[in-house]
Design a protein around this nucleic acid. Structure first.
Lengths: 243, 243
DNA sequence: CACTTATACTTCTATATAGAACCATAACTG
DNA sequence: CAGTTATGGTTCTATATAGAAGTATAAGTG
């Protein structure tokens, strides 16, 4: 039976939630893994089942865990890489959403610009990996992306041959560099297409484009990747509920 | 001590949540009101405090109630009328958000178009109230709106003198017609400004505008109002978190 | 072998109890 | 009368217990 770490003044269930969250951050628990059962935890820490359950409630609410009655509690697989394209709604003939093909146009190592350094919380001038990527749907370009990564933790990624990089980057970050993306913050704006963007997306210069800036973060809330995506605005829809 | 209504097969805490939600729907509990205390409810229905608390958890999660330790549990005031304009971020000199002034340009009774009938879940050709409204911020127009209401429940609103209608419509719907808006669904797209819209918003025809379609709904989830708002896209930002 | 049954494990619901933490207000005190 | 203290209300945390409901697997049965 172990004692629970953390400040004694904050509630036990919070401290247990912190402990479990930490084991996801360190990678002791990986997405898809089953967390220790409620009974196990209440024995392990000498707590009432209700207290353990409340701790799990917190993590389920945060989207870190998900529960299945009779099966167990599992680390949730964050699979939102396709979320941007849910907005753009590119569907195949069967009505299902498609992950677009992607082509990396450029990948270089250079000092990161100021606003990226701020977003990634590193000191100014830190070397980074700069990428341009074009995402295609059935042969037609739909989204143009600029991506920045801090070079040091992603050195292995920088050296990978382009053929080994698939349509989704986040699994590669995890597998090759041990950087796991858990969530992201996005800011959406509209601008007129520059000549460069118009050429890539095959639209008229000055036509409206949706710009989505994304900062991808880990379970520890530390920024991992900066990304700016531009797509033609005429097939863009975004739905939300407010209250 | 009262018995709890509803199907015996569904959990007690769910049935209690349903009961309390219903009293918000009927208006027995209005936004800002304090709900019966946890102790009162557990006495009233002969339930354990934990069960009552779990029922309240459900409603807090839905955004129907909000809790304040030591004070009580209250029906949440849905104050999202300004939310659309939070996206547009018009702030006063003090940095606070401003509710823009509004001018009703037109208000007529006519059959509702098909897509509005679908959205408001009424049969085709039902008479409705059609409004055009222009919202201004410090003298400059920022958002142009088309609004549709079913005529029958809002007959009193149709007859109101324009001077009595303020900048916010939802409080009027509640006060005059007993229709309380609890939440809304919004869909956002981008289009080029028509000549009509360009004139209203004082921008160039063809310039990008944000279009937000909103269906406002009551606590019972029944649609109340259909609204299409158009604002200039060049000062639009929207932030969200995904995971 | 195919099908059913038992079992052990999981989460989920519900009860009962006790006290802490917080808030508003009434009562008291100087 | 102003400031402090007590009191009774509220939500919040935590314990302990019991069984239901759902899932997967092992054991038994024809």
């Amino acid at each position: 039976m172990h004692a629970l770490a953390g400040d004694e003044r904050i509630p036990i269930y919070q401290r247990l939630a912190d402990t479990l969250r930490q084991s996801v951050i360190t990678g002791a628990l990986k997405p898809g893994d089953r967390a220790p059962s409620e009974n196990f935890l209440s024995d392990e820490y000498g707590l009432a089942p209700g207290t353990v359950r409340k701790a799990l409630d917190v993590l389920v609410g945060e989207g870190v865990f998900e529960r299945f009655q009779g099966k167990g509690t599992f680390v949730r697989r964050p699979s939102f890489d396709a979320s941007l394209f849910r907005f753009f709604r590119f569907r195949g003939p069967d009505g299902e959403f498609r992950v677009p093909e992607s082509r990396i146009l450029r990948r270089e190592i250079e000092p990161m610009p100021g606003h990226v350094c701020v977003a990634l919380e590193v000191s100014k001038g830190t070397p980074g990996i700069s990428m341009s990527r074009l995402r295609m749907h059935e042969g037609t370009p739909v989204v143009a992306e600029e991506i920045w990564l801090e070079h040091a933790p992603f050195a292995k990624f920088a050296d990978m041959p382009a053929e080994e990089i698939g349509a989704l980057l986040y699994p590669v970050y995890d597998r090759e560099c041990g950087r796991l993306v858990a969530r992201a913050e996005e800011t959406m704006t509209v601008e007129a297409a520059s000549r460069e963007i118009a050429r890539l997306l095959r639209i008229d210069a000055g036509a409206p484009v949706i710009v989505i800036d994304r900062i991808a973060k880990g379970y520890d809330n530390k920024p991992i990747e900066w990304r700016r995506s531009r797509g033609r605005a005429d097939q863009f829809t975004y739905q939300t509920e407010i209250r």
